[in-house]
Computed example of a mutant assay.
Amino acid sequence: MGALGHHLVTHIPASLSPNDTKLWEDIHPLIETEGLEAALLKHAPTASLEAAIVQSTGDFIAASEASIISEVFNKTRTLRLTNLIPHLLKPGTGIPIVTTNYDRLAELACEEAGLGVDTMFSGHFAARLEPEDSYWSFCRQVKLVGKNVRYKFAPKANVFKPHGSLDWYHREGNPVRYAGILPLPRLIITPGLNKFRSGYESPFDKHRERGNDAIDKASRFLIIGYGFNDDHLETHLTPRIKSGVKTVILTFALSPKAREIAIDNKNVIAADFREEAGTVGSRFIINGAELFYPGISYWDLDGFVKGVLSA
């Protein structure tokens, strides 16, 4: 988020209207001192300024995403999620993954691990938001067993993106998914006061609803790099954790809210990076107590897979 904020400060188009320019002059100093989300919460952008922020955000993340995808295809990088997937239970309905990231690395990681990916869009070039068509496209076999019909689906992940995706565009009043770059508005929700309003528009609403439904039905949570600062998910996720659902939180640095949840709920185990007296390792929160373990990196998904799941 810090790198994105710096990019916006230096790349927001100079062709803004006078009113947007004045508003941006109020916003951008706060990005450097208080962070992107805090700045946009203090000053809600106009529709035109928000469009400029969305465009610049998409350009920045797309460039970073393209670099990572190239490394994956050149076999110089394996995504951490790809290494995790073999260790996960794979229900016939699909592995639910809820991500607030705009990039498509979760989808790529799943496909690299041999899974299909259901994003509720149907079509290969100009895909439409058609959840039912997308769902049934993974059906591979139908059997009549007695009086019951049984369906067999290809192994897949259901990726829910309540904040949008780099390949979602607004086209003639409807969302369309296209893998390349189009001269159309991207459908991504930026932080700030307008986030909650935008979340109730298509296709964000469908992804938010399905993501929250997956959260409501989950018997376990593995939470990676999430700060518990999103209103679209918090009305479901935090109450479920507080109800006793077993939860593991892995991140580089626990946010204040994430740390509070880990301290207050004994069903939560959290790990983040810690350095003490020149020694690096992992800080754990277990049963509300903080513990430091030097020399291990279980806060990192790679370290967690190698040290815990592969042990």
Results as ranks from 00 to 15, higher is better:
Met1Ala: 09
Ala3Asn: 09
Pro13Tyr: 10
Ser15Lys: 11
Asn19Arg: 06
Leu23Thr: 13
Asp26Asn: 12
Ala39Phe: 01
Lys42Ala: 13
Pro45Asn: 07
Thr46Val: 07
Ala47Trp: 06
Ala52Ile: 02
Ala52Phe: 04
Gln55Gly: 05
Gly58Cys: 14
Ile61Lys: 06
Ile61Ala: 05
Ser67Met: 10
Ile68His: 01
Ile68Asn: 00
Ile68Tyr: 08
Ile69Leu: 14
Leu79Glu: 10
Leu79Arg: 07
His87Gly: 01
Leu88Trp: 06
Thr93Pro: 01
Asn101Arg: 06
Arg104Glu: 13
Leu105Gln: 06
Glu107Gln: 13
Cys110Lys: 02
Met120Gln: 11
His124Ile: 04
Asp133Ile: 02
Ser137Asn: 11
Leu144His: 09
Lys147Cys: 02
Lys147Phe: 08
Gly164Lys: 06
Ser165Val: 03
Asn174Pro: 00
Tyr178Asp: 03
Ala179Lys: 07
Gly180His: 12
Arg186Glu: 03
Leu187Asn: 01
Leu193Ala: 15
Lys195Thr: 14
Tyr200Gly: 14
Ser202Thr: 15
Lys206Phe: 14
Gly211Arg: 10
Asn212Asp: 11
Ile223Phe: 04
Gly225Tyr: 04
His232Val: 08
His232Thr: 06
Thr238Lys: 14
Thr238Tyr: 05
Pro239Glu: 14
Lys246His: 06
Thr247Ser: 08
Thr247Lys: 13
Val248Gly: 01
Ala253Val: 07
Ser255Met: 05
Asn267Asp: 07
Arg274Ile: 06
Arg283Trp: 09
Ala289Cys: 08
Leu291Thr: 09
Ser297Asn: 13
Gly303Leu: 04
Gly303Glu: 09
Val305Gln: 04
Lys306Pro: 00
Val308Met: 11
Ala311Val: 12
